[in-house]
Design a binder for these strands. Sequence first.
DNA 1: AGAGTTAGTTCCTAAAAGGAACCCATGGAT
DNA 2: ATCCATGGGTTCCTTTTAGGAACTAACTCT
Lengths: 175, 175
Amino acid sequence: MARSSYDHLNCSIARTMAVIGDAWTPLILRDIAVGITRFDALQRDLGISRKVLSERLATLVDHGVLAREPYQEKPTRYDYHPTEKGADLAFVLLAMQSWGNRWEAGEDGPPMLVRHEPCGALIEAVPSCSSCGERLAVGDLTPVPGPGFKDGPDTAEVRAALERLAATRLAAASP
Amino acid sequence: MARSSYDHLNCSIARTMAVIGDAWTPLILRDIAVGITRFDALQRDLGISRKVLSERLATLVDHGVLAREPYQEKPTRYDYHPTEKGADLAFVLLAMQSWGNRWEAGEDGPPMLVRHEPCGALIEAVPSCSSCGERLAVGDLTPVPGPGFKDGPDTAEVRAALERLAATRLAAASP
DNA sequence: AGAGTTAGTTCCTAAAAGGAACCCATGGAT
DNA sequence: ATCCATGGGTTCCTTTTAGGAACTAACTCT
């Protein structure tokens, strides 16, 4: 798709999708996070075409999510490692994994789990509030415009929807 | 891409990507979560082509993420609402929003924030451990095969990577 | 009767993905 | 020295998918 389609949206989800929003990128990042960092190993493991893999790796390096680093000389060969920005995407991948485990695992159960080393348990990542620490529930969250919100000709839908939502939340708070 | 490319991967991230893994789907779900639930409103707000929008909505209904519901009769018109499975995707979107806010917001700051109604604060979703409740750090997590893990001709890379990771974690635990 | 609203579908063109084959530097075995 | 293997790609060609404008269908409002 034309990347310019996203520009007017002024939305962090859209900006994240501009980085990881294609069919292969999250899987490439998963493999690299697990330690499959070389071109050939990625290509074999995922079954992705070499052309698309080299394109994706290049744009991930451009976005500062991966760094291409030499791991030997003569001949110099490179592999890929997450930057800090890339490592932070792990929480997006973790949310995807949790959802897939819950809703798409099938009869055999989840193919992969995560162990939390400090406590030793097999866990899920549960989203909790950065302020009060409580576990988040979908109905307790209200989106509100932030400092970077831009009003424009296209924002009428969003504004109206946000006001409807705010009204709903108010009604729920004082029954 | 050919959807069959994903079948052999046996991975919850891949299965989640099979549902939301294209350029528009997360944005469609975001709009619907905010209350923009009608075809025309979605099309205007996102600037997506009508053809692609109707395709995406149909596959989301197929996957049980959205339900198409009549909101008036004569003529009968339908809009789209998240199912329980679809509402649970909010946590994936929230993780994307947080990452975008942290790394792609630019000078103006985040375009959208989230208020947690029980405590009233503008918050972020922080991933925490479902067992001990501590905030998760990337380095504290070890992926391990779950009950649905399938060994096969293509799993050599993953197995090897997992063993390398386990060795690394062991070495870190007893220096 | 004619215009407006809403939820689509159809058709055509442009862009992107898939796949197989090829390239290049080097190191090791014969 | 010659041939094969390894690793990280690039090129070329075919098939899929996306974008965009126009069209349809079923009603209501003026």
